[in-house]
Design a protein around this nucleic acid. Structure first.
Length: 420
RNA sequence: GUGGCCGUAGCUCAGCUGGUAGAGCAUCAGUUUGUGGUACUGAGGGUCGCGGGUUCGAGCCCCGUCGGUCACCCCA
């Protein structure tokens, strides 16, 4: 065992998976860009207070934050999510609204790692600030849906719900509290505690013991104001007009306290129940204000890279792209020729690799084969003396005279034609 | 934070009721005195996670610890 290895919940992403991650973000950037969203890059580190506005009742804030005092005495934290940072950026820069942005990057939560869950994890993210229109909710939800389709995923289920206006939500939470209090003893010990702090969250419990009481719980639908009900109805109608299938899940409350009105979640059918949330989001109309900005409606989502890639594996879609070179230079005369040849070919945009350490020709040819190159350019002592190089096709069937010797000076134009 | 399972070469793993380590793949080299993909041959590489204990003797048993994994929790 090496003395040092990655810290728990952290990992190295090596090739070919690293290329897949890059491609993943590129697809997302394309989908978001095509809808008029622009990228925002915010710091990994913020004042702790930025994230505390997410809500004191959430585990993300109270138990899972990587926070510390920096050398200047500031209490800072590694971001546990993107939304709060982006809202802080909105307050700081006051862009014109609607501000439609996408973002991506690592986030940090101190949790026990398991399948589809790491302490450093990546998401892609969409936020729209400054528009109250239910059709923004629809656009955002549809964007996530499109993205999954662009990856090739088919077995994704969209769940939606509404939590109502703040007043609706407050009355509903109170009704839930009463409901759970009445049958307190039949709740699991964990849910008993949760029902005191945040009754909504009990609806999220996966324990069998709690299911009966969850099923008999009051429904948010009975607490909605006219405006909230109308908003939700328009969201549903919009999704229907786009032919995006969805299910209304009254227990979909999501983990962050800032959600108001619309909430939604994309669930992978192939993942089992524990970590089946590929992505989720909703409205968070009060968040910007709580960060010191003007009253500003907001809606957005975050999609987890790890879980989405697991879903891709399960469906056999979105494989890691192959990263090959075009040409591999084999030089048995010491390597200086290879230096010149690779430089001149790279200068015209040809992807070129070479061997080092003056290995045997056989060894270099093996490396050439593994590189995936279409051609090997071979320089031995004869070629060096004659001012020529051998160009050998590697992909084609092997035949005795498939290779050809050309003057060194003709190599650039030869390759330009051969690789066209 | 709680619990189950696991921890042997770079990777995947084998190792019977305890007798001081093996395979496949990968790597490197050779068979082929300049030329890859197949085949054959060989080589390098392990203080069996770490620390204690039991024993004449531990990879194998016991305790602890660290790490991994899965589940709860939480959430993406």
């Amino acid at each position: 065992m090496p003395e040092f290895r990655t810290s728990p919940g952290m990992r190295d992403i090596l090739a070919p998976e690293s290329a897949r991650w890059r491609a993943f973000v590129e697809v997302f950037a394309r989908v978001a860009g095509a809808a008029g969203y622009q990228q925002v890059m915010s710091p990994l580190l913020e004042d702790l207070g930025v994230f505390q506005r997410i809500g004191d009742a959430t585990d993300v804030v109270t138990k899972e934050m990587y926070d510390f005092i920096d050398k200047g005495g500031r209490h800072v934290a590694l971001r546990p999510e993107l939304t709060a940072s982006i809202c802080r950026a909105f307050v700081q820069h006051r862009p014109t609204t609607p501000w439609k942005v996408w973002s991506t990057g690592s986030q940090f939560r101190y949790e026990r790692p398991q399948r589809g869950r790491f302490r450093q994890f990546d998401q892609v993210d969409i936020e729209v600030l400054g528009a109250d229109d239910p059709y923004v909710d629809v656009e955002v939800i549809a964007l996530g849906w499109e993205f999954y389709r662009a990856l090739g995923l088919r077995q994704v289920a969209l769940q939606i719900n509404t939590l109502g206006e703040p007043d609706d939500r407050a009355r509903y939470v109170e009704a839930l509290r009463v409901h759970f209090q009445a049958k307190f003893d039949s709740l699991s010990p964990e849910s008993q505690a949760t029902s005191q702090k945040n009754p909504l969250r009990v609806l999220d419990s996966k324990r069998a013991q709690d299911q009966a009481l969850i099923a008999s719980a009051p429904l948010i639908a009975d607490f909605l104001s006219r405006d909230a009900a109308a908003h939700f109805a328009t969201v549903q109608a919009g999704l229907e007009s786009l032919a995006i299938p969805f299910t209304i899940d009254p227990s979909l409350v999501r983990g962050l306290d800032y959600y108001r009105r619309t909430t939604f979640e994309y669930q992978g059918a192939t993942l089992d129940s524990a970590q089946n949330a590929l992505g989720g989001g909703g409205r968070y109309d009060g968040l910007v204000e709580s960060l010191g900005g003007p009253p500003t409606p907001g809606v957005g989502f975050a999609l987890g890279l790890d879980r989405t890639l697991i879903a891709c594996d399960d469906e056999g879609v979105f494989p890691a792209p192959v990263v090959d070179v075009d040409v591999f230079v084999v030089d048995t005369t010491g390597g200086e020729e290879a230096l010149a040849i690779t430089a001149s070919l790279r200068a015209i945009g040809v992807r070129v690799d070479r061997a080092f350490d003056n290995r045997s020709m056989k060894s270099q040819m093996k490396a050439a084969d593994r590189s995936g190159a279409q051609f090997a350019v071979i320089v031995g002592s004869d070629e060096l003396a004659a001012g020529s190089v051998v160009v050998r096709p590697l992909r084609a069937e092997r035949t005795e005279d498939s290779q050809t010797t050309i003057p060194r000076l003709d190599l650039i134009s030869y390759m330009q034609k051969a690789l066209r």
